[in-house]
Amino acid sequence: MKNDFEEKMADIMIGEAVTALLDEDVAISWAVLTDRLRAAIEHETDEDRVRAGLRAIEEVRREMHIRAGEKTGFASADDLSSQKLH
Rank of each mutant, 00 (worst) to 15 (best):
W30V: 07
M1P: 03
A10H: 06
S29C: 01
A10M: 05
M13A: 08
V18L: 03
A68G: 14
D4V: 00
D79L: 00
M13N: 02
K84R: 14
F5S: 01
T72A: 14
H65E: 15
E16C: 07
D35R: 09
F5A: 08
A10Q: 09
D48A: 15
R55P: 06
D48M: 12
V50N: 03
K8H: 02
S81A: 14
H65V: 14
F74R: 14
G73N: 03
N3S: 10
R55L: 15
E42N: 04
R67L: 09
S29Q: 05
T19Y: 01
R36L: 00
D35H: 09
D11L: 09
S82R: 10
L22R: 14
A75S: 12
L21F: 11
A39S: 03
M64R: 15
V18H: 06
E6L: 13
M9L: 14
A39L: 07
A27L: 07
S29F: 07
R49K: 12
E6Y: 08
V60S: 01
D25L: 07
I28E: 02
A27K: 13
V60H: 01
E63A: 06
H43E: 08
S81G: 15
R49W: 12
W30K: 01
G15L: 05
L37F: 08
E44Y: 02
S82N: 09
A10Y: 04
S81T: 09
E44T: 06
D4L: 00
L22H: 11
D48H: 11
F74N: 10
E42Y: 14
T19H: 13
E63F: 09
D48P: 05
A40C: 08
N3F: 07
S82G: 15
R36H: 05
R62H: 07
S29A: 01
Q83V: 15
I57C: 06
A68E: 02
D78E: 13
L37Q: 13
E58K: 02
L33M: 04
R38W: 08
E70C: 11
A68N: 07
V32D: 00
D35Q: 09
S81K: 13
A56Q: 04
A56K: 04
E63P: 07
T19N: 15
E7G: 01
